[in-house]
Design a protein around this nucleic acid. Sequence first.
RNA 1: GGCCCCGUCGUCUAACGGUUAGGACGCCAGAUUUUCAAUCUGGUAACGCGGGUUCGAUUCCCGCCGGGGCUGCCA
Length: 489
Amino acid sequence: MRTRFAPSPTGFLHVGGLRTALFAYLIARQSKGRFLLRIEDTDQQRSVEGAVENILRTLHWAGLDPDEGVMMSKGMVKQEGTKGPYVQSERLELYQKYAGQLLKDGHAYVCFCSPERLTKMREGQMARKQAPMYDRHCVHLPKKEVEQRLAQGEPHVIRLLVPHDHVFTYVDEIRGEVSFQGHTVDDQVILKSDGFPTYHLAHVVDDHLMEIDLVIRGEEWLSSTPKHLLLFERLGWEPPKYAHVPLLLNKDRTKLSKRQQDVAAEDYIQKGYLPEALINFLALLGWNPGSKQEMFSLAELTEVFSLDRVQKAGAIFDLTKLDWLQGQWIRKLPIAEFADRLQELTAKRFPGAAHDPHFKERADLIHERVTFLKDGPDMLAFFYAEPKISVELLANTKQKVSKDLLPKILKTLVETLESISEKEWVIENLKEQLLACAKEEDLSQGQLLWPLRAALTGLPYSPGAFEVTVALGRPTTLKRLENAQKILR
RNA sequence: GGCCCCGUCGUCUAACGGUUAGGACGCCAGAUUUUCAAUCUGGUAACGCGGGUUCGAUUCCCGCCGGGGCUGCCA
C-alpha cells in the first residue's frame, strides 16, 4: 500500500500530525508498501522558512523516515521518487491543466466575484440563518463574456460545479458508511486567483498521480470528502480509500490547541521524552491492540496495527500516561545505551564524567530511579563534585537520627569502615560489617545508614548507602565522613 | 443556524444481545525498604437521557441531550 503524510510547512510538526504520520507509516510498512512525504505549500502566505527541515528532522527522530517524496539526505532536503515533484508549489502547471479540463468539460466554472461581494453574500445568508454557500452568481455568465473578461485579465477563480441532486456515499476505513446530500455541498474554489490550487484540487491531483491507495488524514477533512470524491469522478479517476482519524483534544474537549498546551512534537523532544515513549503514547491514543499489551515498539506496532481498531471519538491529549510510558521505556533501555546517552549529558556539567571508567556502573545505580535523562546529572553529581552537607540533612526525624546522636554515629561509621581494607571493600562485606556494627551499637539500620548515605551524597534521596559506599571507594568515603564530622563542630 | 462525525471509570480504552461491565494510567491503602524511586498486592471509579425491538440491552433502531469538526481564493 502506498500511503502519504502531507503536512503544510506552516511551522513545527503538530503531535496530531505526528500521529497521523505514524498511522500512515505503519500501514505502508506492514503492507510492504511505501510511505511518502509531500509538502502542501499552496498557501504562500502561511509558509514558514525552515519548516520542512523541522518536519523531516522530527519524523526522523520518531523513526518515521519517508521512503519517497521529500526527504532528508546528509542534512539536506531533497526529493526522491518517480512521481514528483513532491512539493505542491512545483506542480502548478499540473493543477492548472486539470482545472482547465474540468472547465472544458463543464464540471467547473470561472467566477469573478470579489472577496468583498462574497463576504457580503455570506453575511446576508447568515443573517437569514441560511448556510453560507456560494450563490452561483457566475455560473450562468455567457461564454463570450467570460472569455472577454478573462482576456482583459480580470481576477478570477475556478469553482467546482456540484450537482445538487447528487448523493455522495463512501465507506470510510474507520467510520464505515458516510453520506452527504449534494445540495449541502458548496461550489468550492479549486483554483485561486493567484494560480495556486486549493487543498481540494491539489489533494485529488497529487494523490491520484502519486498512486496513493489510502489517504489517512484528520477528521477535520471529513466534511470536504464529497468534494474530493466528485473531483475524482469528474476527472475519471478511481478515488483512494479514506481513513479519517479522530482529533486530539484539549482537556475541555476542544480541538487540541497551542493556547492550552504544547502541541509541537518538538516541545516533547525538548522535554526529554524518548521517541519510543511518544510514539507508543500516540499509538495508544485512539487505537488499541485488542490485547492487554501496553508497550509497543515501532516494530511491534507495525506488526499489529490496524485501522479497524482505531477509535471514532476524539481523545484528550492527557500526558499522565505518557510520563508512565517514558519511565517504562527508559528503564527498558539496555544499560550500555542508557549509560552512553547519559554520559554525554553528564559530561556537559561535569567534564570528568567524559572519561570516567566507572561511568557505566554509576549510571546503573540511577537507571531505575530516573524518568528523564536530563535528571541524571543531578543524581550523579556527588561522584564528580564534593557534596554540600549540613547538619539538617545528616539528622533525620523519620529515621530517628537526632543531632545529638550524630557524633556517635559518625564515629562508629568511621571506625567500622576504617577497619575494612581496600580489598574487602565490596558490597556483601560492607553490608555484613555495617549491619553487625549497628546491632552492636544498638542502632537501627536507618540510624546508621541514613547519615552515611547523606554524608556521601549530600542528597535527601539517592541510590542506597551500600551501593554508594562501594561506588565511591574507600578513600573518598572516609574523607567525606571526616568532612561530616567537621561540620558537627 | 446548516451539514457531518461522535458519546463506557477523571484519562486512554475492552466488550461485537446474556460478563460480578475487563485492562492500563492516575489516585488511595498495604507490602518491600537505609532515603527517593522502582517493584508487588489490594482498593476507588463508567455504560448521557427517554422510548422502542427482544425472553434479555452498554451492545440493534428512533428521538432527545451533550461534545466536536466543517461551513475561507487556510490547510
